[in-house]
Design a protein around this nucleic acid. Structure first.
Lengths: 345, 345
DNA sequence: GACTCACCCCAAAGCGCTTTGGATGCGGTT
DNA sequence: AACCGCATCCAAAGCGCTTTGGGGTGAGTC
C-alpha cells in the first residue's frame, strides 16, 4: 500500500493525503479524519526512504562504537546507554543506526555516514583525552553529542557526562575519612577521558589533606573482571598493601572482590572497596544494604539525556550546543568500613 | 557531491557513472577507472536513501530488542552478539538498525519495519518457548534469523542457536561424576526457550542415571547478579542444601559465588559451580585455570553466524532457510571439585 | 450580480539514484 | 559498399514521497 494507492482509494490526490497525514493545515478536518482512518485500516506506512529522500531528513541517529583492535572489547555500559537513548528515539520517531567499526576506520565512517545521508545526527562514545573525532565532526558539520568529554579539546561541542572528578573526589574523601591512607585506584584505560578525571578527583582529595597518592597503587586498563582481579592481586601482594580500593566499574570491582576473597581478607572489614556504579540493569547494586559502597549514576539516564539533546540539536540547529553534567550519588554499602589498626601501630 | 555533479565533471552521463561505479559491464575499463578515480578524489558517496529507493533494497538489517516492561533489563549478552553481527554487516556493506521496543509494541514494530522499507532482514532476539513472532514474521514475509529457537513452534524458520540441552547435559554429568547429587539449577526466565532446553539437559543427565532432580532446587529469573545471589542464598539455607550449582549465566554465577562466600563455604571445595559462559569480552573466564568451570560458547561468534546466514537469505531468497547449531566446549576451572563427604556419612 | 477571500484540493516538479531501451560509432564480413 | 555485431554511451522513466504554485468552489460583501 503506497501513498498513491491510498489516494486513489479515497478519490483524493496524493498531495492531499500526504498533507492530511502530516498535519498540514491546508486540509479540512473531515478529510483528515477520513484519510487517517483509511490509512489505519489499510495499514499504510509511508516509505521511510522515499520520505527522507524528499525531505532531506533521515530520521535516524547514528551510534558509532569504536572497537579497538587491541582489546576487541565491547563496553558493557553501552547496552544500558542505548536502551535509554533508544527509548527516546522511538518516542520521537527516529531510528538508531549502529555502526561498529575498527578504530582505524572511524574517520572514514563518520564522513561516509554524513555524505551518505543515512543519519541526521551522531552519538559519539568513549572519548579519549585528546579526541580527534571532535575536530573531525566539527569540520564535517553534523550535529553530534559526545557521551563524556575530551579534556584536551578546546573546540566547542555538545556533551553529556557524569561529574567524574567530583564523584571520585567524594569517594576518596569517604575512604580517607574512614582512616584509609593506602588506597589503590583501579581505573579504566589511561587515555580515556573519564579515567583521567577520576584520577584527578582521587588526587584532589589526597592533596586537600596534604597527603600524597602512591603511583604504585594506581592501575588502568579495560574494565574487565579479569583486570580487577589481576590488579588487586598485584596490589595486595605488595609489602605495604592497600587497605582500600577505589574502582571505576562494578565489573572490575567484582574482580577486585574475588582477589580479596582469595587472599582470605574480609571485604568491608579488612579491606574496603568503593566503586563507580553505572546502574546496569543486570548488575544492580541495590538492596537494603547494597553490596558495594558506590558512586552511582545511571548510564541509561545518560543515554536518555544525550538522545534528547541530540534530537533537539537536529531539529533546532540554531539553538546552539548543549551540555549536561550529571551528578553521581554516593551509596553506602557493605564493602566499606573503617581502617583496621594493624598490630604494629 | 552527487552523481549528477560527478557526471558533469567527467563529461559523462549519470547512467555511465552509475554503471561504472557499480561494476556493470557496459562501460569500458578505461572509463571505469577514470570514474573511480574521480569519485575517490572528490569523495563521492552515493546517497543511500536514493539508492535504496531506486533498487528497492534497504541495505540494512534490523535488530529488535524487546524490553520487557516488568524487568526493563537489557541482556548483557546482547553487546557481544551485535559486535559479532556488526562486524559482518560492515564487511558486507549493510547497516544495522536497532530498535528497542516494549514487549507490547513488538508486533506493530515488525510490521512497520517491513512496510517502511527500512530494512531487508531481521534478527530476532530472545525467543520464548511459544514464540508468536515467528508466525507473525512468516506472515509478514521478510527474511529473518532467530538467535535461539522456539521449541513450541512448528513453523519453519531460520535460526542460530547453541546446543543448550547438550551443554547442560554434559555439565550435569560432570557434577554427577564428581559425586554431587544435590545440584541446584539457577536458570534464566522460565518462558525462555534456552532456559527450557537447559533444564531438559539437566534432567536428562539425572534421568540417565536413574536419579531425580529436586524441583526445590530449580530457580529461574532474569539473569542478574542479584538473582544469582538471592537464589543461592535461599538454596543454601535449606535443610539439605545443594553441594553444587549449575548456572545459566556467568553474571548470575558471580552472584552465586558471592552467596557462597558469605556463607563461609569455599568454592571448588565445599561447593561447586558450573556455569554457562557466553565468552563476553568484559567478563572472560580464562587464564591457566579459569575461575569457573563452564560450558563456553562465544555469543559473538553466534552473532557472526546469524548475520552471515541472514545476509545470505536476503541476497539469495531462493536458497531456503538455514540453521546453525553451535556446540559449547566444557572448560574446567577452579569452581568444581569432588563432593565432600559430610560427617554423617 | 460581480467581486473578494478563505478554504480545499490538485498537478507537477523534484529529492538522488538505478535501469530500461535505445543511439552512436567503429571494425570486420560478405 | 552495404551490412552486421559489438562496445560504449546516453535520455528518460521511475522508485515513493513532499512541496510549490496554482485552481476551483462557495460564502460573504457591496
Amino acid at each position: 500500500m503506497k501513498l498513491k494507492d491510498l489516494s486513489e482509494l479515497l478519490n483524493l490526490s496524493p498531495t492531499t493525503v500526504s498533507r492530511a497525514l502530516n498535519g498540514y493545515p491546508e486540509v479540512s478536518e473531515a478529510t483528515r479524519r477520513r484519510v487517517r482512518e483509511a490509512a489505519e485500516t489499510h495499514g499504510y506506512r509511508p516509505n521511510v526512504r522515499a520520505r527522507s529522500l524528499a525531505t532531506g531528513r533521515a530520521m535516524a541517529i547514528g551510534h558509532v562504537i569504536p572497537l579497538s583492535s587491541k582489546h576487541e572489547m565491547m563496553n558493557p555500559v553501552f547496552t544500558d546507554f542505548i536502551a535509554g537513548a533508544g527509548e527516546v528515539y522511538a518516542a520521537q520517531g527516529y531510528d538508531m543506526l549502529l555502526t561498529i567499526v575498527p578504530d582505524e576506520l572511524q574517520e572514514q565512517t563518520y564522513r561516509d555516514l554524513r555524505t551518505n545521508g543515512s543519519i541526521d545526527g551522531l552519538l559519539v562514545h568513549s572519548p579519549k583525552l585528546a579526541e580527534q573525532r571532535i575536530h573531525l565532526l566539527n569540520e564535517i558539520g553534523i550535529p553530534y553529542v559526545v557521551h563524556g568529554r575530551a579534556s584536551d579539546c578546546n573546540e566547542p561541542y555538545a556533551w553529556v557526562d557524569m561529574n567524574n572528578t567530583h564523584a571520585f573526589r567524594r569517594a576518596t574523601d569517604l575512604l580517607l575519612d574512614l582512616g584509609h591512607r593506602r588506597i589503590a585506584l583501579v581505573n579504566g584505560l589511561a587515555d580515556m577521558d573519564f579515567a583521567i578525571r577520576r584520577q584527578a578527583g582521587f588526587e584532589e582529595a589526597f592533596a586537600a589533606r596534604g597527603l600524597d597518592t602512591d603511583p604504585a597503587l594506581i592501575a588502568g586498563e579495560e574494565m574487565t573482571e579479569m583486570f580487577g582481579h589481576e590488579a588487586a592481586r598485584a596490589f595486595l601482594a605488595q609489602p605495604d598493601p592497600p587497605t582500600a580500593f577505589l574502582v571505576s566499574s562494578i565489573i572490575t570491582a567484582l574482580g577486585v572482590r574475588r582477589a580479596i576473597g582469595e587472599t582470605g581478607l574480609r571485604l568491608g572489614r579488612d579491606v574496603s572497596i568503593v566503586t563507580h556504579d553505572d546502574d546496569l540493569s543486570y548488575l544492580q547494586n541495590r538492596g537494603d544494604v547494597p553490596m558495594f559502597t558506590a558512586t552511582r549514576s545511571s548510564v541509561r539516564d545518560a543515554g536518555r539525556h544525550a538522545a534528547r539533546i541530540l534530537i533537539d540539536m537536529v531539529e533546532n540547529p540554531a539553538a546552539g550546543l548543549r551540555q549536561a553534567l550529571l551528578e553521581a550519588e554516593l551509596i553506602l554499602g557493605q564493602s566499606t568500613g573503617p581502617r583496621l589498626q594493624s598490630a604494629a601501630e
